[in-house]
């Protein structure tokens, strides 16, 4: 198998992990209009919850992933209600909210470390049989990750395009004041955005942990930059852009890692980001409004 195709194979897996994470971050941004810098820790929390369910409680890894994602969704809802909303009620400027989420990020990372310890962990699940698809080789576990991403991205698409709450999310992303005036219950839609964002973060954290095999409490924060790159390349606040950004960043970083040192993946992601921003400062998906 050529290096290129091998890179494309890895790229598809990374893109799947990245798509889940990026769409979760960008959905929340689209609705609330500020970046959650603690989002990386949401992934970490998802990964450790699944570790608890699968390795300590001995549940199936995919069932553990689902439980972890649901709990992360609940946690995300709680963060919005307990941490973010009090600041919004006092009409805190956006800069303050950014500082708050950065603080939360440090707090959560240290919290996870205090509970789970700083050492490497690994899920007990096996990576499954080897499957050949054309010239590319995947494990069944990797194929499940790709399938999860495809199902969830389709789900997000259907949600945004065809459901009442999905359209309400897009309306808030366009103009929150007008959404409120039109009768959209912005508080409930904001809650929902945080829940979906947390759910996707939880899933992403688990599949990321599976993908990198062993992980520590910095799992999510180390991945956050790549998530940002995908989100910004696609145009921040635009879920379809994030999907495309994830595919682009995933493929290019993994293919390049076949030819140059894989330690440069982040540098490559940064290079793509810079190049895209030079030519399209609004991101690739920008002709129509956000989302």
């Amino acid at each position: 198998m050529s290096l290129l195709l091998m890179g494309v194979g890895f790229g598809l897996i990374t893109a799947s992990v990245l798509a889940l994470a990026s769409v979760g971050l960008t959905l929340q941004f689209g609705v609330t209009n500020f970046v959650n810098f603690a989002y990386g820790e949401f992934l970490t929390i998802g990964a450790y919850l699944a570790y608890f369910f699968s390795t300590v409680a001995n549940l199936n890894i995919w069932l553990s992933m689902l439980l972890a994602a649901l709990l992360t969704a609940g946690f995300s809802w709680l963060v919005n209600r307990v941490v973010i909303q009090p600041f919004l009620k006092r009409k805190a400027p956006l800069l303050i909210l950014l500082v708050v989420t950065i603080g939360l990020s440090l707090f959560l990372e240290n919290g996870v470390q205090a509970i789970a310890g700083p050492s490497f962990e690994q899920y007990a699940a096996s990576s499954g049989a080897i499957v050949n698809i054309g010239p590319m080789i995947f494990t069944t576990q990797q194929l499940v990750i790709i399938a999860i991403a495809i199902v969830l991205m389709t789900g997000v698409h259907l949600l945004l395009k065809y459901t009442r709450v999905g359209k309400a999310m897009r309306s808030m992303s366009d103009d929150p004041d007008l959404a409120r005036i039109s009768g959209v219950p912005i508080q409930r839609i904001t809650d929902l955005a945080w829940v979906i964002s947390g759910f996707l973060a939880g899933l992403a954290g688990v599949v990321l942990a599976i993908n990198v095999t062993s992980f520590t409490p910095v799992l999510g924060s180390q991945f956050l930059f790549i998530i940002f790159a995908a989100v910004i390349v696609g145009g921040i606040g635009r879920p379809y852009g994030a999907m495309l950004g994830a595919l682009l960043i995933g493929l290019v970083t993994e293919v390049s890692a076949m030819y140059i040192d894989s330690a440069y993946k982040t540098v490559v992601a940064f290079a793509i980001l810079v190049i895209v921003l030079l030519f399209r400062p609004q991101g690739i998906f920008s002709s129509k409004g956000r989302v």
Partner: peptide, 16 residues
């Protein structure tokens, strides 16, 4: 109006 939403979607939001 919501610029990125279609005309029909704008109306649907009004009926929320």
């Amino acid at each position: 109006v919501f610029p990125s939403l279609s005309v029909r979607e704008n109306l649907e939001i009004g009926a929320y």
